[in-house]
Simulated scan of single mutants.
Amino acid sequence: MDNAMLYIRHAELTRERVPSFQAYPFDLPVIRSFNRLAFQKRVTFLAGENGTGKSTLLEGIAAAWGFNPEGGTLNFSFNTRSSHSSLHKYLRLAKGVRRPRDGFFLRAESYYNVASYIDQLDEEPVEPGEPVKSPLIKNSYGGKSLHEQSHGESFFSAFVHRFGGQGLYILDEPEAALSPLRQMSLLVRMHELAEQQSQFIIATHSPILMSYPGADIYLLEGEGIRPVTLEETEHYTVTKAFMNDRAGMLRELLGDGGKG
């Protein structure tokens, strides 16, 4: 695919503007060596071990686009705790020829705050003399407060009801609250939206999600980022090895405690 048709064509670190590569987040090995990440497909995955910087990089891309660092749509401006890095200030995004009609930044760790912000906005009274209040925001998430749903249900409500197509969707570990069956359902929804001219950039540990056909997978490791196949990821090989020889793996991990 011609990446000019994608909403984000590449993300580039303006290294000459970075004040110091000895301070966070620029001291992270992957960020310290980062130059440019190109996007070629409608679905791109960032994979890597905990602490490699994939969530930091994803957050930087989302904030550089204009999303609230805690998540939500471009219209969400709440700030529960300023824990995001300054990386977005030093990222330059090359945008495609089209603008998305929709967008969402989903962060597993702060989705509770997004749900609270939606409830807060819906509960604000209409001031005297103001027009009739607009439809409740929760109607765009299935008509039920996200706090009245399980964590997994609230995640999936966003995917099914809020994501409307022709959108830029940046997702940080969306599998965190989803069962394997729900992860497969998310694959179906992703495909529907990708067919509707949407672009996904996803940081994940899930081999199920990374199985999406034709997607690009970038592995963050050591001091670099490189393209890999699903079968080359540790997420896939470890999961496969464990399920193929569960008893042997448990004996290896637990010693005598793994007998049975």
Rank of each mutant, 00 (worst) to 15 (best):
K138L: 14
F105A: 02
E70F: 08
A62G: 03
V30M: 11
L121D: 02
A62F: 04
V114N: 01
R17W: 05
I118E: 03
S86L: 14
H10G: 06
H10P: 01
K144E: 12
L46T: 09
I8N: 07
Q22P: 00
N139T: 14
K54R: 07
P125L: 09
E127S: 13
L58W: 02
E70K: 09
L136W: 06
V97F: 04
L87I: 10
T14G: 00
G51F: 11
L106R: 00
P128D: 07
F34Y: 10
G51A: 12
F76W: 14
S86W: 01
L46W: 03
G129E: 09
S83P: 00
R107I: 04
N75H: 15
S82C: 05
E127V: 09
Y141C: 08
E16N: 10
A11C: 11
L46Y: 02
T56F: 03
K144A: 04
K144I: 15
N113M: 01
R92H: 14
L46F: 07
I61G: 01
V126C: 08
P135F: 04
F76V: 14
S83G: 11
I137Y: 08
F104M: 09
N139M: 13
P100H: 02
H88Y: 15
T80R: 15
G60A: 05
G48M: 11
E49V: 13
L91D: 11
G103E: 10
L136R: 15
E49L: 12
Y24K: 06
K89Y: 08
T52P: 01
E16H: 10
P19D: 03
Y24M: 09
P29H: 07
K41C: 07
I118W: 03
P29W: 08
L146T: 04
R42D: 13
S140L: 15
F34C: 08
I31H: 06
L13F: 05
V132N: 04
Q40W: 13
G143Y: 05
S82P: 05
S86R: 15
R92T: 15
Q120W: 11
E59C: 13
E130I: 00
E130A: 14
R32T: 12
F105H: 02
Y90G: 05
R98P: 00
V18P: 05
L91K: 13
S110I: 00
I8V: 13
F78C: 07
D119S: 07
I137M: 14
D102Y: 00
L146E: 03
D27T: 06
E123I: 01
S85F: 05
L87C: 08
Y141S: 01
